[in-house]
Simulated scan of single mutants.
Amino acid sequence: MKTHFKTIIISDVHLGTKGSKAKEVARFLKQYSCENLILNGDIIDGWQLKKSGSWKRKHTRFFNRILKMIERDQTNVTYLRGNHDDFLDQILPIQIGNLSIQNDMIYESNGKKFFITHGDIFDSVTTNLRWIAYLGDVGYTFLLWLNRLVNYHRRKRGLPYYSLSQYVKGKVKTAVSYIDQYEEELAKMAKAKGCDGIICGHIHKAENRMIDGILYLNSGDWVETMSALAEDHDGNWQLIYYNEINFRKSYRSEDDKAVAIERPRELKTVAFESVSKGLKIPNFFF
């Protein structure tokens, strides 16, 4: 049987870009069933599609997986607008059966309220200084290109996946300061709205911690971290990392294709939080 959750939240899939892990996120969703699936922004990367991005068959398969969850499991799917899929402004809010598209939402579960937003509205750079945001997007795209090169050589040496951009974020003091301020401001917003927690994405940094009495949850991304948030029926939240799932082909689905299910195991930290074994970082990243 599939593992069943009350709610699963994913964000920052960035479909249409080379860095998007569309196959992995579709495979991830194939392992679980849930009552509610929340797509918390930047699922489609409209910015890159306008420039050099391209739409692949694997990107379409991701949405096919979503449709199957709606049809077979009666999953309620909510798509929240992010900054990279701001083209949704032309149609939201909209409700079509079990699918709704909107800006943000209040989620109530087990007597607690959570404000769910992609998070870019609290980022003065992407909100007010769009040209700087695009410049940052170019730099991040370059890091992802370099990251693919680095991990190609790491795989050949039998080394685990390494996130170069997360390493840079952790080393550059301004980036660390920005992330801390971002998380604190979101916690303040949740408190102002009378909520017990805040759930977001945007900064590609998965997190589950308390900030001044507010539960701060960030679902991470599906470009590097490959993580999601999941809530059980008792209201407990956990981060699930794709790289920590033990995939084993133990049964066959109705379409006679092999399906892997997750075996319970202790979730570990993602690879980029470990020491950068076998990798030398050029000085210009510091």
Rank of each mutant, 00 (worst) to 15 (best):
Y162H: 11
Y162P: 06
S163D: 10
S163V: 02
S163M: 06
L164M: 10
S165W: 01
S165T: 13
S165V: 10
Q166Y: 02
Q166E: 11
Q166W: 03
Y167K: 13
K169S: 15
K169F: 10
G170W: 04
K173G: 13
T174F: 07
T174N: 13
V176I: 13
V176Q: 14
S177P: 04
S177N: 12
Y178V: 06
Y178T: 08
Q181Y: 09
E184S: 12
E184P: 10
E185K: 13
A187T: 03
K188G: 03
M189C: 13
M189S: 09
A192P: 10
K193M: 06
G194M: 07
D196K: 01
G197Y: 01
I198D: 01
I198V: 11
C200Y: 00
G201M: 00
G201I: 01
H202I: 04
H204P: 10
E207I: 03
E207V: 08
E207F: 03
N208W: 02
N208Q: 11
N208V: 09
R209I: 07
R209P: 05
M210I: 06
I211C: 04
D212Q: 09
D212L: 09
G213Y: 09
G213Q: 09
L215T: 00
Y216W: 07
L217N: 01
S219A: 15
S219Q: 01
G220V: 04
D221M: 06
D221V: 04
D221I: 01
V223T: 08
E224V: 09
T225F: 02
T225V: 15
T225W: 00
M226H: 05
M226A: 14
M226R: 05
S227T: 03
A228S: 10
L229K: 01
D232N: 12
H233S: 05
H233L: 06
D234E: 09
D234K: 02
W237L: 11
Q238F: 04
L239E: 00
Y242N: 11
Y242M: 08
Y242Q: 09
N243C: 15
I245P: 07
I245M: 14
I245L: 15
F247N: 11
S250Y: 08
Y251V: 15
E254P: 09
E254S: 12
E254G: 12
E254T: 12
D255A: 15
D256V: 12
D256W: 08
D256P: 07
D256K: 14
